[in-house]
Design a protein around this nucleic acid. Structure first.
Lengths: 412, 412
DNA sequence: TTACACGATTCAAACGTTTCAAGTCCAAAA
DNA sequence: TTTTGGACTTGAAACGTTTGAATCGTGTAA
């Protein structure tokens, strides 16, 4: 007949329910956790326990439970910067993969800060996430914490960056194919004098995208004017691309005017370019076309909509998650074949910002210079996670070298 | 000399470290948790323990620790939809408040789904968050789980919605002041025939914003044409406002043409309006001005930039967090004075989408009809959390009724 | 020699669960 | 009457920590 007067934590526990029911903790646990044994219990008892639990507002303590069960059903998700619109659809994809498996995401935002990246990863480790998905277009060099992740046998996967050289399975868009896709689109519209704004040096994506652009230009026999190929400065936050695009566009107009299209590193840069052009009195697309990369929300809702290369962001998230869950299934966790990155095929989304060059500029160009493969139609809906209808089939997960020609789709 | 061969979980535990050091678990714990007792320990021992822990990659188990300590240092953050650009700055503000207090956010995304809202809240309860912050422009009526939150003595705060009637402390923008601010801006530019797109019925913000708009119009003696006052349909996801704005703009052009400005419910709606006007051949701002509400990223980076009413989103997040932390400090948690909502002052951000009406329309209007209070200059930088320079001082937290006139600031 | 203090380390209990083995009770079979 | 068996319920240990109390040497004072 012991009677505890003060309950230390404000939370209702199993023993609170047990006391109220005049039953043992075990019994209550068995019932409330739907253990197989609960079938052996009198229906009336079960009923009573459930009712009491509901009345008291009991919720099992995930901490105690995980401690006992040694499973947290948790996957750590470490985003390099959640204020980058890039991250959100990826996170949605991850959520989409996690939900049916009854896993739970532990979402951390590194806010483009190294310090936070480290502390977040530590947190994920301390919270005993069973796996980690890192969303990083951003660099995290020589993070010694990653070694700790391995020491604790926590599988890790990265989205948006190729880290296969460190044996980390990687899911990212085929940047080279995307770069080529963008260039081919402009070429097929008849543009010949094309400005390119490359990404910042410290961003992994910059190089392969540029390579794809060059390749496509070479193939078409178009020479890129070096004065029209500039690089963004290293980014300090997601929107610095906008400022960069705006300024570089203005610089190019004064240093080497006469281009009829700008191929921008990403959508925010493209939006900056549109702004910069406007400030110089040029209209998009009448005077100059602009194409971006990523297909983030702002690109879709601005006017004109930004023609862009869509990254299957959501797909990247869900594929990465599936992969991680598969790994967690196996007891033998060595089999994370991280030999080659998973390159997802990008898709061209044509919106209002690209059009044939103005008549005066079009003079010397052979309009049928490029064969233009008829692609599937793609509606002009933004790459937003909540649109169920946006889950396009990615036709070839790892595109062949020839994929460059193939992708060209036309939207409204 | 007992020797355990198989370690069940892959994680390195205290006893692993202890064994490696030939010391007891207690000793190791004392050292690694920096308990006061650790000062009594031989420096050499301390050294050895730290070194071993580092070598093995030990990270304390947050679950076991919280269980024992009965404190999780966790605050649940429940966002109604993270893909809404509205949420991100608020989350940043929360993070900003949590970090210095060494609290940790448990971020959940309800994805505008009732089911997920419930399960997320349950999750937060099960993970023993010490408090909850709900970001909700969206409704969650009769959520019985909220009762459970109370039963477990978990303080709760809401951002973006007034729930003081349920005794929940609420932080939100002064919507009525904002609505008036928007209308006054258009009026002061000389617009008289103004279209208004009201928010959907099911959104709390719609009514007070509209009230402010009406009030301002009345004061200026301007009558709003009922054919030019339409409501958005209930939203299904964050970007449905865009589609709504686009369609309503086109409808209005055909049903009651001749308006010179559109006051849109929020930024996405405004962006939709710009698109819709464009499709009908109208240019912004030359033929028609557009003003939005919120100041989300897409409004800032589109061209022209959208003139808008900025919500101090980040501030809302950090104030709410501070308030929550104060409550957690006290042992007596009853003092959550939730009598009146905390209304933060909105700010007018002038960008390219608003300008005086076209000359032909301006004919009959008295151009000096309104006195125009000179406001502080506000730079045209987007309401993005990562810009440190964006932390404006909100001059009056709870604006007086006369605040309507006062706020009018001009940016580049 | 005993007692004592002191510094260094360890014991053991507890946090809220889950789960297996082991109860208890009662009616029916031996 | 004792045993058996089934239906229902409980005891106790464990998960990885933390922490106040206890232990163990060892050198010094009584």
């Amino acid at each position: 007949m012991l009677k505890r007067v003060k309950l230390k934590s404000g939370h209702v526990t199993l023993s609170d329910v047990a006391r109220a029911c005049q039953l043992s903790v075990s019994t209550v646990s068995i019932v409330l956790s739907h253990a197989p044994l609960s079938l052996r219990l009198a229906a009336a008892t079960r009923e009573r326990i459930h009712a009491t639990a509901l009345r008291l507002g009991y919720h099992p303590d995930a901490y105690a439970r995980s401690l006992r069960n040694r499973s947290t059903k948790t996957v750590g998700v470490l985003a390099y910067d959640m204020s980058d619109p890039f991250c959100i659809p990826v996170i949605r994809g991850i959520e989409e993969g996690l939900l049916p498996a009854h896993y739970f995401s532990l979402l951390m935002d590194a806010q483009t800060e190294r310090r936070l990246f480290d502390s977040s990863l530590r947190m994920i480790l301390e919270r005993r996430a069973e796996g980690v998905i890192v969303i990083a277009s951003w660099v995290f060099e020589e993070a010694n914490l990653l070694a700790d992740v391995e020491k604790n046998h926590v599988p890790i996967i990265i989205v948006g960056r190729d880290l296969t050289e460190r044996r980390i399975p990687s899911f990212l868009v085929d940047n080279q194919a995307g770069g080529a896709l963008a260039m081919n689109h402009l070429l097929s519209l008849g543009h010949r004098r094309i400005a390119v704004i490359r990404g910042p040096e410290d961003l992994f994506d910059s190089r392969p995208r540029w390579k794809g652009v060059q390749l496509a230009a070479d193939r078409a026999g178009v020479r890129l004017d070096p004065r029209l190929v500039l690089s963004l400065p290293n980014r300090v936050d997601p929107i610095s691309g906008f400022e960069g695009g705006r300024q570089l566009a203005r610089e190019m107009i004064s240093s080497a005017p006469g281009f009829t299209a700008v191929l921008a590193f990403d959508d925010l840069t493209a939006l900056g370019v549109v702004r910069g052009l406007g400030q110089e009195g040029l209209r998009v697309p009448e005077d100059c076309s602009v194409i971006g990369f990523d297909d983030i929300l702002p690109a879709a809702v601005s006017t004109p909509g930004i023609t862009t290369i869509r990254q299957p962001l959501r797909k990247m998230g869900s594929l990465a998650t599936q992969r991680l869950l598969e790994t967690l299934q196996k007891t033998n966790r060595t089999g994370l074949s991280a030999a080659t990155p998973h390159l997802l095929a990008p898709e061209l989304v044509v919106r209002g910002s690209s059009a044939p060059p103005p008549a005066k500029a079009r003079a010397g160009s052979a309009s049928t210079a490029l064969r233009h493969a008829p692609g599937t139609t793609l509606r002009d809906t933004p790459n937003q996670p909540q649109r169920k209808d946006l889950l396009h089939t990615v036709r070839n997960r790892i595109p062949s070298k020839r994929a460059l020609d193939r992708h060209s789709t036309r939207a409204s």
